[in-house]
């Protein structure tokens, strides 16, 4: 047992930047670190060369993650990570491009880029850490904040409606859409791993906890209590398919929710280039 833990820690440290980067900016108990660990282990399992992985992020708590990771890392402007990542991927299609984003970053200010990147089905994996609130600016409501919840900009309860990230991504054309939680870490690792392997645009929506703001404002308790809420309310897609919809009340679906095969952007572009070259040669 001890040996295994030591080995796990070695793997993690192999992918982290040692100098000057720690301690990290996140609150104690934050889900971001759990997602970072899961991402590292899935990259390790896929045996990817660190030099050929690019991690791109926007602005927000979760978007600080690339700074700690020993890859090619691009910490960009608020909401624009997917647009930057699209440029990186098209310029160098052999790079594995992973985007780390939050619910505000990806769905509010970056909502337009999110749907268009889904539509293009470009081979990028997006890990959307969804804590239902703006953490870095101090607890304002986000497009994922449930109706009635409290936030600093919803002091009398949120009267807006929330996005369903999964439905949005499927509707916009993403070829791989999954949801995990920071409680179900082993499942999360597998979902990320499969997302990276998928040739096309992958979205992994990760239900995470912001006990500092969301938990405190909405009386959902500390990190441990919020994690046990996830444990109680997550329903694997396999189970959901077997039960009547009314039994889903208050629960949310996890697992690989949607997958389809569609032509991928950089591949399509290369096909066009090859066709043009062939035409030119025939002349």
């Amino acid at each position: 047992m001890m040996e295994k833990i030591a080995h796990g820690s070695d793997v993690t440290h192999h992918y982290l930047r040692p100098k000057k980067k720690f301690p990290n900016v996140w609150c104690a108990g934050c889900g971001n670190g759990i997602v970072m660990g899961a991402l590292i282990r899935s990259i390790d399992r896929l045996d990817l060369d660190k030099d050929n992985v690019a991690v791109v992020s926007g602005i927000g708590c979760s978007s600080r993650m690339p700074v700690y990771l020993d890859f090619n890392t691009l910490h960009t402007t608020h909401g624009r990570a997917l647009a930057f990542a699209t440029g990186v991927k098209i310029a160098k299609p052999n790079l594995t491009v992973i985007v780390i984003t939050g619910d505000g970053d990806a769905l509010a200010i970056g909502g337009n880029h999110f749907i268009h990147t889904c539509r293009r089905n470009i081979n990028i994996t997006t890990i959307l850490i969804d804590n239902r609130i703006y953490g870095m600016t101090g607890g304002q409501f986000a497009p994922t904040t449930p109706g009635g919840s409290f936030a600093t900009t919803a002091p009398y309860g949120n009267y807006e409606k929330q996005f369903d990230v999964v439905k949005l991504a499927i509707g916009a054309g993403a070829s791989y859409v999954a949801r995990g939680t920071v409680y179900h870490v082993q499942q999360l690792e597998k979902l990320i791993e499969a997302g990276i392997k998928k040739k096309g645009f992958s979205v992994v929506d990760v239900v995470s906890n912001c006990h500092t703001y969301y938990g405190r404002f909405n009386k959902e308790g500390d990190a441990v209590e919020m994690l046990s809420w996830m444990k109680k309310h997550a329903m694997p897609i396999e189970a959901v398919r077997k039960i009547p919809p009314e039994k889903m009340k208050g629960k949310f679906v996890t697992g690989l929710i949607h997958e389809h095969d569609a032509t991928e952007f950089t591949h399509e572009y290369q096909m066009m280039v090859d066709r043009l070259a062939q035409k030119e040669a025939e002349k």
Binding site: A54, L74, T86, G87
Partner: peptide, 16 residues
């Protein structure tokens, strides 16, 4: 999809 994304993609490609 817009000019914000255009210059973002340009900067991404330049870094690549």
């Amino acid at each position: 999809e817009d000019e914000i994304a255009s210059i973002a993609a340009v900067i991404g490609a330049s870094n690549a």
